[in-house]
Amino acid sequence: MVTPPIKISVQNLNAFFSTAPSLMNVDIDIEANQILSVIGPANSGKTTFLRCLNRLNDFTPTFKMTGRIALDNKDIYKEYDPVLLRRKVGIIFALPMPLPLTVFENVVYGLRRQYIKDKKILSEAAEKALKDAYLWEEVKDRLDEQAMKLSGGQQQRLCIARTLAVNPDVVLFDEPCSALDPISTAKIEEAMLKLKNHYTIVLVTNNTKQAARVGDKTAFFLMGRLVEMAETGRLFTAPQDKRTDDYISGRFG
């Protein structure tokens, strides 16, 4: 079996808010075109980890970090412009957060910020992104409506489309289904499984079953440390660490 190339390599990552450590000595290699699920109880550092990958923590004044994160072998803190990095590494937040604009303007928001004005290019990009997010059929006649009028599940898929429209390499999902009903959740999981053909995906989730359903590999975080990472099937059937076992079998968390 050929191992896929490494897309993101995290080495000895430590992160702090003020002086409180939030992540300690995390080493992870994330493989291209795979889904990595990240699980762990609340405050285990998994969201902080995710937000390190596209430098969103930079905007929290108390945030500090050490270690190295490389995207395609280039240090994202030294060799990338943060704005360009975020175009390569998109993120979907826990709550659906459309901007108070129309559906169409939400999807092309990122493209407009790249000074793309051609109506035809924008329309084509929007249609492709909406199709990839499995939303096109539902909204193709509603592109000029306010995005806030869509249902919660549709809004979240709109957020996915909006991220895909920028044409990233990596898509980060931060508990994307925590506010959604099971049917909407299923649609998003279906989308993720298709998306991994073109994108590398990191999924942070509270829902261990979701991690098991979609993750190629799964990483378990506890109190800021990476406890264990393995093929999803193996992690859930034969965890090496007792704490992982306790967590996935529901003894805490």
């Binding site: 969103l56 704005v83 998109g90 937040f93 957060m97 928001y109 910020r113």
Partner: peptide
């Protein structure tokens, strides 16, 4: 705050 995060995460500059 989420409006700012969304916009930044889509690759906008701070000023944009």
């Amino acid at each position: 705050k989420s409006f700012r995060e969304v916009s930044l995460s889509l690759g906008s500059t701070k000023l944009q």
